[in-house]
Every structure is written in structure tokens, then in C-alpha cells.
Design a protein around this nucleic acid. Sequence first.
DNA 1: AAATATACTTAGAATGCTTAGG
DNA 2: CCTAAGCATTCTAAGTATATTT
Length: 551
Amino acid sequence: MRVVRLLRLRAALTLLGEVPRRPASRGVPGSRRTQKGSGARWEKEKHEDGVKWRQLEHKGPYFAPPYEPLPDGVRFFYEGRPVRLSVAAEEVATFYGRMLDHEYTTKEVFRKNFFNDWRKEMAVEEREVIKSLDKCDFTEIHRYFVDKAAARKVLSREEKQKLKEEAEKLQQEFGYCILDGHQEKIGNFKIEPPGLFRGRGDHPKMGMLKRRITPEDVVINCSRDSKIPEPPAGHQWKEVRSDNTVTWLAAWTESVQNSIKYIMLNPCSKLKGETAWQKFETARRLRGFVDEIRSQYRADWKSREMKTRQRAVALYFIDKLALRAGNEKEDGEAADTVGCCSLRVEHVQLHPEADGCQHVVEFDFLGKDCIRYYNRVPVEKPVYKNLQLFMENKDPRDDLFDRLTTTSLNKHLQELMDGLTAKVFRTYNASITLQEQLRALTRAEDSIAAKILSYNRANRVVAILCNHQRATPSTFEKSMQNLQTKIQAKKEQVAEARAELRRARAEHKAQGDGKSRRCKRFRVPVEKIYSKTQRERFAWALAMAGEDFEF
DNA sequence: AAATATACTTAGAATGCTTAGG
DNA sequence: CCTAAGCATTCTAAGTATATTT
């Protein structure tokens, strides 16, 4: 289950933590900051407005290794006859061939886009021959990559070790930068390799060729007086600039959506940690304004201005249901998904009465990543009445909030509280929910195992609020699952019984253990909850969270 | 004021690694 | 031991937010 990890930690620490007394990270002086109020330690060395660094030095990005042509024995067939492809066409063919067992290759849009882009890479003669994807046979190519993957798996211990060391060497060479005198880990130092675009849901561009990026596509950002990264031999950077108002080290434009991709720092870096911390401070500040804001939007439900009413109802949804803001998107460029402000009439249904409640709104729409949001919620009467009004004389495809944009909503929020935007409500409500759940579910005398169970349950509640979920398995996987359903059910029963036993044992042990019995209300060692990486990433939170920290 | 560009966060899928159970 | 389930990490698509341009 995926849950916004920052808020998880932040709120969890408040209630769970045996919090280590150690400095947050290098560059942060040793003494622990005071428990409430501003995060003086993390604010130290603050630059003036908009400036993100004084010094930035790095080695540039790591490029995908060049294409290795297929061995002669691996052939591509057209209409049953082997056809020798040019290197350029072959490379793109391998992108498709290796995906043959993926559901994508059964989708018409994917196939059409791939074939269209593939033909562009072909030589004239190839293009004259290869005219239909249905007549293409990539099975040998596919087999080749399957075998290759299998061969990797059965490598000897030493060979695997060698591969690991090579990866480590790469990490050492390209994975770090110097920012203001400190070494920092980079998040994504590798340029994305070429391949076929894997858009989610019904993406109109799925299958398109994501071009290979060369140094000539890449803009480097570093300090003027630093050692400028060397482009790979025989190449040049598109541009080298020195802009210290941004945090990225390198950038390029991706060929499918024409959007800019960035090389940036790892979340454990000071820079990222600071902004994450600030984000929580903003959400925490909202606590002091939220009552006022709520009575304000309630009053606005009766405003004479339609614009204001729409804004007030939308804000109510964002607050109550943790919906995303819902920016507009260009159609034809991406899958048809919506958020709060971009909801259409077809996405909501009004029920005067349902499930024994009055004024029920039924939401059914695709949100971020094409994850379905389905919910039936009783709402207050004025909200219901307003929705009826907003839907009057509209087509299903019309905007529900036709007088509202994310920009105007955020402008309004900014006036209510400095730094307030729509997404802050998600952070705020998720954090508050986790904290309340932890309070409700845990007791001081619980064993550590029981507390962890409560913690996981609390997170599940937050996940439901935020509609975090994985896509349903593909039809292929589904049929596999069906075959195994019976076995699975039995296994689960057994596993559940085992888990129960283990839990009982753990509890027994914990009860008997004097040390853990002395635990205070929420104490659980932080290692039990967060992996090393997570603890590094949230060093700032660990450093600032005191015994009595509350969100 | 609408469209566009830019920079940054969020989040699911894919992949890698560890560990529990046979 | 080996295997596979489950967790962690990596990858990159898809969001949000806002500044700039038209």
C-alpha cells in the first residue's frame, strides 16, 4: 500500500517514536532544535529569495550505452521471410520485440503509434517492404531478450558481484554532486534510455518512440567557476548555463510529449529535505486557519455570485474528500483524467436518497494515473442544491465548475493563508487523519507488534482517503490468478493462521520483556517502521520531532 | 485572460533484493 | 539449500503550481 511517505513519517513520529538524538545531517549543527515552532536548524544557511545554491558542481548525466546490434542468429521476419534490418530500424524493432508479452502490444493505439514511428526510422527500401505490423514477426527477437534475462538470473555469485561493483562505480562517478561545499546524492543521474512510450490508461501517445538522447540535447546547469562536466568524447552539450534559482543539474526535452526532463537531487539531500519540511510546515499552519476557511466556504455556498459558489463547493470537496486540484489538460495529448476543478457533469450523479442517507453525491471518474475514483458521499444540503444548479442545462461532457480554474482557486486560497494551495489540503488531511487514527487505535500498553499493526491500519485509512491503489491486474495475469484461486485461498488461510500465531508469540514475548513493557504510550523503535533509505530521506523530520511533537 | 513554458512533487509500474518457508 | 513472496528501490509518467508570453 502506498501512502504519502512524508506525512506518514511526520505524523507517525509524533506518536510512535523513540526518536534518536542525533544531528539531522551534515551541515546541520549538532544541537537538537526545539520541539515546536520554527525549524531553525533546517532554515540555517538560507539563501536570499529564489536562490537555491551558491556552488554546484557535477559530472553531468550518464548516457544510455549505445545500441548493440542483434547477433546474426536472431532474425526478424516479414510475411514469413527473414528481413535484415538496418541498425536504426532494428533498434526500434527490439523495443517492440522485447515487449511482446506485455499487454501494451495488444492495444491498437500502441501498435499504430509504434508502427508509425518505426517506419520513420526505416530506410526507404525497408519502408517499401514493411507495410503492415500484422505481417511482422518479432518472436526471435523476443526470445532473445527472454533468454538474456534468464541468463542474467543464473550468473554465478562472482559474476553478479562484478555487475554490482560496476553499478557501484557508476554511482560513485556520476551519482553525486557538490552543492555549497557538501557532497549530495543525485536522484536520477541516468538519462532515460530510448524505448516505446508507456502512457497510462488510454493514452493517445502510447507506443510512440522515445528518442535516444544525446549530449547535444542536454542543457547543463552548474556554477560558472566549477569544473564543467565533460561531454562524452566527440560530443557537445546543447548549452551550459549557470542558473542558481533552480535546483536541476541537467535537462533535456523528451520527444513524445515535448516536456522537459530534469536531473535533480535525491530526496535525502538537504535541498529536498528542506522543501519537504517546508511543505509540512505549511500544512501544519493550515491547522490554525482551517476552521475559519471552512466557515468561509460554507457561507460562500449562498453567495450571489455563481463563481464564488462553485469555488466554495469545489473547495469543500478538496477539503472533505482530499481530491486533487484538477488542472486543465490539452485533449489528445494525454489520457482523459480529471481532478476537482476539471470534473465534468458526467462524473457526478445526484441521489436525493441513497444508502439510507439524504443528498448523496456519487463520484465516478478517472484521476491521476487513470486510477478510478468511485465514492458515494452524503453532502450537506446546500452543496447538493448547488450541484443541481451547476448541472442544470448542461451536457454530460460540460464542466461541472465552468466558472472555476485551479489558478483562480489557488489565487483565492493564497489570500486566505500565505502559501496555501489546493494540494496543501491533501497533505493536511492525510496527516491529521493518520494522527487521529493512531490515537484511536493504539494504547500505551500495546506490544510493539500490536502498535505496528495499528500503524499499518492507520495508514490504510489514509490510503483510502487519498485513493491510493494499484491498477487491477491485466487479463493475462487475471486468468493466471483464476487458475490459482483455490490454491491461493488455502495458502492464505494457512498464512493467516501462521501470522496469528506469530503475532501471539511476539506479543507474549514483548509482554514478558521488561524493557518493552516500560515503553511509553506510542514508543516504537523507528527502525521498525522505516527503512534506512526512508530514515535518510526524512532525516529532517527525525531531527525535529520531539517526544511531544504533534502535527 | 488565455496559452504556453518551466520547475518541481507525487505515484504507480517495473525491477531488484531479501527472507521466510518448503 | 532453493524458491517465491514480499518488500525496497528505481524509473519515469502524470500531476500541481506559477511565471512568462501572447
